[in-house]
Every structure is written in structure tokens, then in C-alpha cells.
Computed example of a mutant assay.
Amino acid sequence: MTSEEKQDRIDQYLLGKADKNSRREFEEESTRDEELLKGLEDTKSAMAAIELAEDRALKARLQGLETSLREGNGTSEAKVVGLKPRRSGTLRYLAYAASLLLVLAIGWWALSPSFGQSPQQLAMANFEAYPNIAYQLERSGTEEPSPEALAFVAYEAGDFASAATRFRELDDTPTNRFYRAQSELAQENFAAASPLFQALSQLPDFALSAESEYFHALALLGTGASDEAANELLGISETPGHPMAQEAAELLAKIR
């Protein structure tokens, strides 16, 4: 028996078009034929989805009519449109489509860059050290570099452990604190970076307060506080003109 013939039998069975003997024979055969049983379950799911969609559409239509009547706009007679009978092949196509969508969804999930990543890995995959826009380094000269220059030299060189240490020794200005927090986050010291970024994000006059808010969400994610991170990312993504809105929305989609 071909797959198409099996599907025809399934359609006949579910639509109540099979006689009593045929139904009993089908039920007995489905207990032995795994492919037939799977087709039966898939078609039942497709039919249930169709019925649910039709129920919702009917409910919405009735609610619309009720609203129109209440507003005095229901003067015209409602037109009842009969439903066209479905061909038996319709259920088959719906079952195939549902199966294909399921396969595609599973494939997308497995191939997604965030598939199988821990919160810490996801945080670091979306982290890039913020460029040094605060201190202009002199590449030449005989003068001994200042402590601030040494901190930024280490930062630009990617020596974040040394940079974090040097920034801690500087005056606790918002700018120095921001790059110290960046250095901590780059080393995956999430617990150390989180309160620094949180405090910076609450400074209304700090030029990088909005960016600090996003990096605070990354630090939260790294500590495992995924729900808190998601809430913060949602707020960022919904804030008009936020410089990190796109990054926040993309990361939020990976968390959910």
C-alpha cells in the first residue's frame, strides 16, 4: 500500500466516511503499522489545529458583530457564507506541511549560533571590548607614561588583567570605572563587572551610561541571572534612540 493510499484511509476514518467493518479493520491495522499510526496522529493534530483556527475566527467575527450592534452600526443583515467541503487531500497536505515546518524548526534551532551555549558563553559571544575613546595615547616621546596612560596601553593591547589592576589604582572617575568594568567583563569576571556597570548606567550626565546599561545586562547574563538580563535587554530594545537597542534585541531573541 502506497503512502497516498494510507493517507486516504486515514482521511476516510477521521471524516467518518468508512463503514463499521472498515473502521474496525483500520483500528486493528494501526496497532501493527507504525507508519499508519504516525500518519493518523499527525492528521489528528492537523485537524485539531484547523478546528481551533476556525473557532477563533468565528469567535472574532461574532465579537465584531456584537460590537457593531452596540455602536449602532449593525443595520445591515449579516451574510452567512457556507463552508466549502474540504477534499480528502487537504488534510494530507496539511500534515505534510506541519511535518516540514517541524523539521525546519528543529534544524534552525540546532544550527542557531546560540544552540547549546551556556549563559556565560552567550554573554561573551555578544561582548566586544569598547574602544578607547577617552584617552589619546602618545606613541612617541621620552617622558615616562602616566599611570592613566599605562592603564589604557594595557587595555588597548588586550592585557585586561593588567588594565583592570591599573584602573583600580586610578581616581574613581566614571570614565576610569567604565574601562575598569570593561576589563573585568573581558576576563569573564561577571560578578565584579555587574555592579560597576549598574552604577554607571544610573549616572544621567555620564556619556556612556546607555552603553553601560547594555554591558550590565551582559554581566548579569554571565552570572546566570538570565531573567534579570532579559528584562534589562527588553527595556533597552524598547527605548527609542538607545545606542544599543539593536544589539539588545538580537541578544534577547537568543535568550528566549
Rank of each mutant, 00 (worst) to 15 (best):
T2D: 11
E4S: 09
E4A: 08
E5R: 11
D19G: 08
R24K: 11
F26Y: 04
T31S: 11
E34D: 04
L40A: 10
L40V: 02
D42H: 06
T43W: 03
E51I: 02
E54S: 07
R56V: 06
K59S: 08
K59P: 04
A60W: 11
E66M: 00
E66C: 01
L69A: 00
E71V: 00
G72D: 03
N73I: 00
T75I: 00
A78E: 00
K79D: 01
K79C: 09
V81F: 01
G82M: 09
L83F: 12
K84R: 01
R86D: 09
S88Y: 02
T90S: 12
Y96W: 06
A97E: 15
A97T: 15
A98M: 05
L100Q: 02
L102C: 07
L102V: 06
W109K: 15
W109C: 06
S114T: 07
S114Y: 03
F115E: 03
F115L: 07
P119A: 12
P119N: 12
P119K: 15
Q120T: 11
Q120S: 03
Q120M: 10
A125L: 04
A129L: 12
P131N: 12
I133F: 05
I133C: 05
A134K: 04
A134F: 10
Y135C: 10
Y135A: 06
R139V: 02
S140F: 08
E148M: 12
L150Q: 10
A154Y: 02
A157Y: 03
D159C: 07
D159K: 08
A161S: 03
A161V: 07
S162N: 06
T165W: 09
E169F: 15
T175F: 14
N176E: 13
R177E: 15
F178P: 04
F178H: 12
Y179H: 09
R180D: 05
A181F: 09
Q182C: 10
E184P: 01
L185M: 15
Q187Y: 03
F190T: 11
F190R: 12
A191N: 14
A193R: 14
A199Q: 04
S201Y: 07
S212K: 03
F215C: 01
L218Y: 10
L218G: 05
A219H: 06
A225G: 07
E228I: 14
E228T: 14
L233T: 01
I236A: 05
E238S: 07
E238D: 08
T239Y: 13
H242R: 13
P243Y: 15
P243F: 14
A245I: 14
A248V: 10
A249T: 05
E250T: 09
R256E: 00
